[in-house]
Design a protein around this nucleic acid. Sequence first.
DNA 1: CTTATAGGGTACGTGGCGTACCTTAAGCGG
DNA 2: CCGCTTAAGGTACGCCACGTACCCTATAAG
Lengths: 193, 193
Amino acid sequence: MGTRRRGEELERAILHAAADELRESGYAGLTMDRVAARAGTNKNAIYRRWPHRAALGIAAYRHLSDAALPDPDTGSLRGDALEMLRKANETWSSPHGAVLRGLLAAAADDPELLTLMRERSGADTMDRAWLGMLERAAARGEAPAAAAHHRVATTPIMLLRAEYAMRGIPSVPDEVLVEIVDEVFLPLVRGRG
Amino acid sequence: MGTRRRGEELERAILHAAADELRESGYAGLTMDRVAARAGTNKNAIYRRWPHRAALGIAAYRHLSDAALPDPDTGSLRGDALEMLRKANETWSSPHGAVLRGLLAAAADDPELLTLMRERSGADTMDRAWLGMLERAAARGEAPAAAAHHRVATTPIMLLRAEYAMRGIPSVPDEVLVEIVDEVFLPLVRGRG
DNA sequence: CTTATAGGGTACGTGGCGTACCTTAAGCGG
DNA sequence: CCGCTTAAGGTACGCCACGTACCCTATAAG
């Protein structure tokens, strides 16, 4: 009776319900019927807003984490890089990360969804953080100025990403992170002099 | 009527049918009913051999390509590396590659399937080819011996893989490959002196 | 006060996986 | 040569989940 939710309010309720389902069951376990039930509405209201499950999943994902992105300042480039990698590894291996990987897999053959993902997952922001790190290192004289290059900055997380793609669910061991920094990232920075 | 196929013969027929379906419809479009129909048999015969769709998909994938893996010798490290990357890019952006990426996505949260994939997709072989390339370059005096390191060798393909994970279906543009080689791989090799 | 709009309820079509059962052919041991 | 075990064929089904179609009702806007 009385109150029938509409517009914004209903939309928030749906997204909230969907985010809860994501948290509890992951993307694979996210069903439209259960989201509708949990939000106390029906599938119509959902399909009027998102064309299919994947779109809802992606939209709901942002409600999971506001990803306080680290901006470490340990004093050394090596320390900063390791810190960044470790934080990323934590995030990706957490339940959040599992959800994110599930979404990524689901969007893998739909370019439209992929771009949506990138916007919502803050990948670009992360890239900029790495670039900033390199610039600070260059300012300290710890790295050549030519090292502050986009490809260089993104290399470590790209490697981490690929590592996840090859391995699967469990977190990447810390030794691998150290290797990425010591055997690839630092030599690479050095090599650009 | 005489002939009812059994054992090996039937198994080959099923795999052949599944491979055809993969080629035509990709992994997402691979259905058990159609494979059974195409092989002129029924789902029982399939489920007696593979526990689920994903397992069949992976088993059938090997019938698609025997991936003649390139072992270039252009005389320069840069040339060899670019050649390898370009071949990999071609493969990954071909229909074969689409199938492979579909399988990878499907196996993403099942470690057991992932290891199966790695065996069947010849990823390890590719890694060894890169290492060999680096060793030859070192022998020519074109690279420090310390550059022939596993992490270094796998970096370019890992970056390519990650690039696919971020972008989706279309092939990665050649400029990106060149950048990976010139801005990352070669400086990295140089930096390990 | 009327009317367009959007939500609620519900049922259904469709497709695909995996399973259950029974019937029938093949091969094998005696 | 014969029966028995094993594997194939045929078919139907349970189940689940997506997406759609209707029809009814509350809400807000004019």
